[in-house]
Computed example of a mutant assay.
Amino acid sequence: MRTMLPDLPPLPEIDYRPLPYEARLGTRPREAITRVVIHCTETPDLASARRFGEKVLYDSGTGNSGHYYIDRDGRVLLYVRPERIAHHVSGHNADSVGIELVNRGRYPHWLDSRHQAMTEPYPEAQIQALIALLRHLRHELPNLRHIAGHEDLDTRTVPASDDPSKTVPRKRDPGPLFPWERVLRETGLVRIVAD
C-alpha cells in the first residue's frame, strides 16, 4: 500500500542530456528499481560534474555517473534514463537510481585527512527540486520504497592522500548537512543502510 503524501509544488522541468555512452549501459525493467541513492557531486559546479560523468573508465566504453543531477538553483537534468543501470554506487547499481546534488563536498581534497569536513549547505531550491523529483519517481517506479546516501552503502575506508598511515572514508556524501528528516517526511521513502 502506498503512503499518501501531501501536495507539493509540481515537478520541475527535467532537461534530458544523455551521456554519450548511455546506450552502452545495461538495461532493466522499471519494476527492478527499489531504491534511490543520494549523492553530492563533490565538484565546484555542474559543468565539472558533467565532464567527470563523460569520462570513459571501463572496457564497456562507459563511466561513473548518476541518473539525475540537480543544480544549486533547482534545475534538474537527466543524464541516464532510469531503465539503464548507471555506475554510481559500488555493488548497488542494479536496483537503484542515483541522484547527484551539485555540492563541493570535500573538493578538491577528497581523501586528505585534513579536509574531510563538508560545509556547503544544500540550497532550498535544490532540496525542493529533489523532493519533487523523488515524489515523481515514486509514482513512475512501482517498487521504489527505499532511499540511502552514498555514505550508507559504500562504507569502505582508504589510505589518506596526505598520510597513508591514516584512513578516511571513501565516500561521505551527501554528508552531514543533508536534511534527511525533511526528505523522509515529505517523500514517504524509508532510509536503508548497507548490510
Rank of each mutant, 00 (worst) to 15 (best):
V56K: 10
D71R: 10
V36N: 05
S90M: 14
H39L: 13
N64W: 14
V89C: 14
P29D: 15
A32W: 04
S65M: 05
G74W: 04
V80S: 01
V56Y: 08
G66A: 09
I70T: 08
G61V: 04
P44L: 04
P29A: 10
P82W: 01
S65A: 15
H87A: 09
L78G: 03
L77P: 07
Y68D: 06
S65R: 03
Y79L: 15
G53M: 08
R35V: 05
A49L: 05
N64E: 12
L57P: 04
R28D: 13
E83L: 06
I38D: 14
R75T: 15
T41P: 01
N64I: 09
R30A: 12
S48F: 07
R81T: 15
H67V: 04
A86R: 02
R75L: 13
T62I: 03
D73E: 10
G74E: 02
Y79H: 14
A32F: 01
T34C: 10
K55S: 12
S60I: 09
R72G: 00
A32M: 02
D73G: 06
T41H: 00
D59E: 15
H39W: 06
R72A: 07
T41V: 03
Y58H: 12
T62P: 07
I85P: 06
I38M: 14
H67P: 01
A47G: 03
Y79Q: 13
H67K: 03
G53R: 00
D59I: 04
H87V: 08
P44K: 00
I38G: 11
Y69I: 09
D71G: 06
R51Q: 15
L77M: 14
L78M: 11
T41E: 01
L46F: 15
H87M: 07
V89I: 15
D45L: 02
E42D: 12
E83Q: 11
S48V: 08
T62K: 05
T34N: 13
A86V: 04
T27M: 14
I38W: 11
L46W: 14
R50P: 00
R28P: 15
V37R: 10
N64V: 07
F52D: 03
G74C: 04
E42R: 12
L78A: 06
S65C: 13
T27F: 09
P29N: 13
V56W: 07
A49Q: 05
S90W: 13
L57M: 12
R81N: 10
R84A: 10
N64P: 04
R30D: 04
G63N: 02
A86M: 03
R84M: 06
G66W: 01
L77Y: 14
V76L: 09
I85L: 09
E54S: 03
V37P: 11
I38C: 08
L57C: 10
C40Q: 11
R50I: 12
R28N: 09
R28I: 11
E83W: 02
Y69N: 09
